[in-house]
Structures are given as C-alpha cells and as structure tokens.
Design a protein around this nucleic acid. Structure first.
Lengths: 247, 247
DNA sequence: CGAGGCGTTGACACCCATCAACATGGGTGG
DNA sequence: CCACCCATGTTGATGGGTGTCAACGCCTCG
C-alpha cells in the first residue's frame, strides 16, 4: 500500500507504523465521490461516518440566522472528517466540497470499540483532532487580534504549510481553489475588503493572486506580515515515540 | 467518592460508570494550588501533565508579538487542562489562573499507554476534547460573523450554560470573575467598547453587570440577541451508550 | 489618606461594511 | 465563431462600528 496523504500527514507528527495502515484498510468501506458544492453533511443532521478526504478540498462552515457564512476550517487531502461522529449526535456545521472530492468512508463504531479493536487508528484520530484544535485556536487569535492584512497573510501561510505537510510544497506558484468570497468567510471580512487586502499584499511585494493562482513572491515577507510562527502546526515529529507494528 | 465536577460535566454527555472514577483515582497525584495570576504553563514551554481543574477559573491565552492578548478559552471546574500534552511537546498558549485555583495532577504517560491501561479515562479525555473543540468552533463563528453586542451576549449565554452543566445554575445572579479587560480579550474588541456593549445589553433589558456581578434580567432576550442555540454544547446525553463498570 | 486598579464618558479617527456600478472572463448555445 | 450570460473581480463613495486618546470617577487596600 503506497503512502497516502493521511499517512504522510500523520508521519509529520509521530512515527507511523504498519498498524495504522492495517487499521484503515480493515475499516475502509466504499469511496464517496462529491461534486463541487455537494455536502457531506449539513448542520442539524445526524453525523455521518468518519471519512478520510483523499482528493479535493472541503470546507466546514456555518450559515448564521441572518444568512452570513463563516468558514470554520479547510479540509485538504489527508484530513479526517466527521471525527465528532464518535461523540455527538448531530453536526453543528455543513461540510461542503469546494472542488470535486473523493473520500473514503470508515466504519468505526463507537470510540470505545475503536480503542479496543483498532488502537492505532484511535490514536491517529486523537492526534489529528488535536492538530485541528490547534488550527482552530490559532484562527481565534487571528479573528480576535489581527487586522485583515495579517489575517489573510496568516491563512496563506497556513495553507502553504499544510500543503507542504502532504508533499505538495509549492515552488513559487500554487492553485488555491478558493474564490475571494471564500476568503471573506474564512477571515470574517467582506468580499470587497478581500480585494483591497490582496491588493495590499501585492503592493507589499508578498504575493499575487489572480483567478485562483497564488504566486508567492516573498514568503519571508508574507510570514513577517502575518506574524506567522509555524509552531502551532506541530510539524516537528516527536522523537520520543516509537512506531507500533501491525497486529 | 462523591461526584466531582468533572464527573458531573461528563455525565451530561454520556453515561459515566465507576470505571472513570477508578481511573482518575488511580492516576491522581498531588493537588496543585495556584494564586490568581499564576500560570500553569506558558507559551513555548514543554507541556505539563494533564490536570483537572477542581476550583476556580483559568484562562488559556496568547500574547501576540505586538503585545495584544487573545483569550482562547475559559476553563471552569470540571475541565481538563493540558490535554495536548499527550500529543505535542510545547504549548502555544499560556494557561493562567483568573482566581485562586485548585487542580489535580494526573500522571498519564502517552495516549497509547492510557488507552491500554485506563480506557475509561482515555474515552473521557477524547470526549472533553471534542466538547472543547465545539466551543472553539463556535467562538470562530462569533468572532467572524457576529458584532460586539451579539458576541458578548453569546459568551454570557455560554458561561451560564456551562455553569449549569456542573450544577451551578445561576438563579438570576452570578459572580463572573472576569473584568472588562478579560471580556475585551475574549471578544476581540477594546476595553472601552466592552463598556459600551454592556451598556447596550443593559438598555435592552437583558443583563446588568457591575463589579463582577452578572444579573440576568431576561435570559430569553439575551439568547435572542446572541442568536444562541445551545446545541453546540452537546448537553443532551447520548442514550445509545451504556456505562462501563470499573475493572 | 494616597495609590493603583478598574470603570466610564466624550471627541475623534480609522478600519471595514454596504451599496452601486462597471469590468473581466469562461462557458454555453446558436 | 460569435453573442450572450452568469459568476467573479474591481473601483469609488459613503456610513457605521469600533479603536484610540485623554480625562475623570469610584472603590479597595495598604
């Protein structure tokens, strides 16, 4: 079995052994294909199974009563989705495909059962969840205490860093399947202000963004604008843990 | 063993058996006492052990390079702290006592070991962590798409709801050990605007707040202003799970 | 009784939202 | 191949929400 994105991603955090691959193989059910715009789940619905996103990008979002949208996080290949299905009964968010997407459905049962039968996967899920919580906490800091320019620069840094983690490290240019409206709803600002903010980043010589093509002109400057410190992504693999063999 | 706050809290989510109490008793080490203002851990430091907050309130916060502060979440009695110690090596946040606080230190080892030896506690930690992630996601929505009045009302609703969960349901009045500067750093606004916003909530007849005393005048109105829907707190205990006996 | 922490008010400025209008560009049908 | 359309991007004018600054009041505590 070749290294999938989820293995690549988790390998950035801790030593991944054969056990996890075996667990995933054992629980994998059918593939799910979604068109751009289709939902995996919608707010208020009972949770679906846990899925692994294999291709494409998805967005976890909330529509507020007055019709505004807030994107809570971005899912990229290698990310788990619907982890909370193990805990809660209904989703509080929509999870929508931003591009055509391919997912693998896992049949896990309760977390209790999962710990007993597939501890490698249980561990990986907890790890991925902690990582996601890190991203959320950092977003709270952005939304609370950074202005629009810093926020945008920060999200761009995060996207680049997360792509690097799954071996898609961009060399100067990358395709980001987000339109300016998406950035607005990630950053908590208006569409129009996204335009101005991209213009500012361009004037500062950091990046250019046109028709979903992001050109990195000066990554160091981008990070400086953002106040980006990658530590919260916890990429440095822990050396004090050892891989676990498959059962 | 009498029901502690952590048991009360978790009982709101799933049926808690004797096993969890036994696990906590087995791993509990010394009590930690902190004065108001003292830190359990600071950003950049290696993580401490997992702790259970037994008395007092604590705040998880980040100081940004330009000296601003963002409070990421509020810890109340019954909350676990430093869960990420099982995953990551360094903390990205300060965790500071807002009041004099009492904590119980747990000696857990790695999550892997914990799953094997104390699955009841492992399960509880995952559950509590999922709950905390829910709170964070909701805060992202607040900071991104709600104005100052809605945000303040929403945090107040959340505080009341979380206190109810540990049987401290306020009947009209409660002590909230936060000063206006804390609210500013939770809500991502300035101190001065907190004053205006409390005044507005008062004019609207929802609450009064003077010297850390919060008087609930009209809870329904407060929730209406906030657009508060308690579902994200996932209080409704799952009926499809059964308690597990102690080993 | 003084000092310092905290709360409050008003004046003013700035960031960002809103609205309206227009530009661009890719896709589709004729 | 062209005409059209719709989604998306862009600009300028205007206004509101919120930040900043300065000053003052209140209360607690030593």
């Amino acid at each position: 079995m070749s290294a999938t994105d989820v293995i690549r991603k988790l390998s950035g955090f801790f030593p991944v052994g054969e056990e996890l691959k075996a667990d995933i193989a054992a629980l994998k059910r059918e593939q799910v294909e979604l068109d751009a715009g289709e939902s995996l789940i919608r707010a208020g619905e009972p949770y679906a199974d846990i899925h692994i996103l294999e291709k494409g990008w998805m967005l976890r979002m909330r529509i507020t009563p007055d019709g505004a949208r807030q994107i809570v996080n971005i899912a990229m290949p290698g990310d788990f989705l619907c982890f909370n299905t193990l805990m809660f009964q209904t989703s509080q968010f929509d999870i929508v495909a931003k591009t055509p997407a391919t997912l693998a459905r896992l049949q896990t049962g309760s977390f209790r059962e999962l710990m007993m039968r597939h501890p490698g996967l249980a561990e990986a899920l907890v790890w991925a969840n902690a990582h996601e919580e890190s991203l959320l906490a950092e977003r709270v800091v952005s939304l609370g205490r950074r202005d629009a320019t810093q926020r945008l620069a920060h999200v761009l840094c995060e996207i680049v860093a997360r792509l690097s983690l799954i071996d898609r490290k961009p060399n100067g240019m990358l395709i980001v399947p987000l339109i300016q409206e998406d950035f607005a709803d990630i950053l908590g600002i208006s569409i129009i202000h996204v335009v101005r903010t991209f213009k500012r980043l361009s004037e500062l010589g950091a990046v250019e963004y046109r028709s979903r093509r992001l050109v990195l002109k000066d990554t160091a400057k981008l990070q400086e604008i953002a106040g980006f410190e990658g530590e919260y992504l916890h990429f440095s693999q822990r050396k004090d843990l050892r891989p676990v063999a498959a059962e």
